[in-house]
Write a protein that binds this DNA or RNA. Structure first.
Lengths: 247, 247
DNA sequence: CGTGATATTGATTCCACTCAATATGAGTGG
DNA sequence: CCACTCATATTGAGTGGAATCAATATCACG
């Protein structure tokens, strides 16, 4: 967690002490748990310590759109902070651990720590950038490129936060989930995976994904990880972050 | 401007005084002016006092994606605040007036006014919601629905800020612009307008748009203006409802 | 009155959808 | 241990919405 904040701003000792006190004790959650639904009243940010989850909205006809896929280190629920309402459903893809940061504490943070405020803004910005990038991919790319891009994004984000071996990772999404994220039919997701597999670009067995040659897949996807950039780098670089145990 | 902030939070006298001092003198800009390009260094928020503009990114193949269409009262450049870099191009669609709010002043605002900080966060959230809504529309809707939705959104935003007669408004976007915003071909935008016009849902002559029966168009579009909601409407007392996992 | 930007219309192609059937495999209980 | 079930994935056939290519049409403006 603290590591994640550190990626977004320069923290001093006071900030670190502040962070350590923030939020509730993490609690365990299970795959399939629904943290909240669209329209629910919102009272806190949710910090993901472990596990995967997604946020989604539903159209009138019942089809589902996955908006974001979130992993360890991500923070969820920015939207409710200013509206008091959840704008989308949040569902666990795997078991995990989460804690809550009441909005009141966030507001206190605004008052007490401009640096932390900036860090929260940076996270919000980064997530906006991810959605904007998805928009571009969905608007103009083929099915192959969509899927390739999605996989590259997952891989890159995992590499930056958790530790993923270069040799593959668990992607706990069904083909239907991926279809709902990318605006495709599940059938076509299957066909596309088959096609990518035949060309040796990916391997997918159950939920284990291997990307033999990431550079090649990124080229196909037109993937440039620039947009995942956390924040300005010159400030971050001279940050001798104290090694604080991560929850 | 102040009215716009007011939509996002409760301001007291001090805040209003603060706002009045903020930012540079507005300057005039012309249709076609490029305020910045993707990758440019960023040093300030941009406040739109009058005029239309869009932000866009380009894919490798040169195709353009319009990310946002911005009108009087909107604020631009949140992304650069935390990255120091512009994430997209910003181009004027019409003549207009804009002023700048240096990032340093924004950071000062973070330190001095939690309320204003929250208001900025709310604006950022609202814009994220617009992009997310666009994502959903692009993922799952037909061309007719995409265009109908886009028009409903423009109309609603115009009604909320500027004063637009119910009898129509100027939409200063070419069909190519609309195509680039919605991930369609310009040809198909034309066909779709023709189709919508034949059914009496819209009229478009040059850049003047008339929506004879907004409710009907909104029904076709599946448009629910909820997502354009600025922020909590003072109704929200504190209901600290803990999000309990549901199986 | 030409010129360039914008828009319309026709013909054709193709990517991805739908419907439908089948396969694969994990988990469960008799 | 096998049979059953349910979730997930694959494959085939046929369709259709939107893209592309290409040829005008319209109109504002100098």
């Amino acid at each position: 967690m603290i590591k994640r904040f550190g990626a977004h701003c320069t923290l001093d000792q006071g900030d670190v002490a502040l962070l350590a006190r923030l939020g509730s004790e993490p609690r365990q959650v299970r795959a399939g748990d629904i943290l909240w639904r669209e329209g629910d009243p919102a009272a806190s940010l949710l910090i993901v310590h472990a596990g995967w989850l997604y946020s989604a909205k539903y159209l009138q006809d019942g089809t589902r759109q996955l908006l974001e896929v979130l992993i360890s280190g991500d923070i969820l629920g920015f939207y409710g902070l200013t509206t008091g309402i959840r704008c989308s459903e949040a569902v666990l893809l795997t078991d995990g651990w989460v804690s809550e940061l009441p909005y009141q504490e966030v507001l206190d943070l605004f008052a007490s720590s401009p640096r932390m405020t900036t860090a929260l803004f940076a996270m919000s910005n980064q997530r906006r950038a991810i959605i904007a990038e998805r928009l571009m991919v969905m608007a103009r790319r083929t099915a192959r490129e969509k899927i390739a891009h999605f996989l590259c994004e997952c891989r890159t984000r995992l590499l930056e936060t958790a530790q993923v071996s270069e040799e593959g990772f668990i992607l706990p999404l069904t083909q239907q989930d991926i279809a709902d994220a990318l605006g495709m039919s599940a059938v076509h997701v299957s066909r596309t995976f088959t096609s990518l597999t035949e060309e040796g670009l990916v391997q997918r067995k159950h939920f284990r994904l291997v990307i033999p040659n990431p550079a090649k897949l990124e080229e196909l996807a037109g993937f440039d990880k620039q947009y995942l950039l956390a924040s300005r780098k010159e400030t971050a670089s001279h940050t001798p972050l104290p090694a604080i145990p991560v929850k």
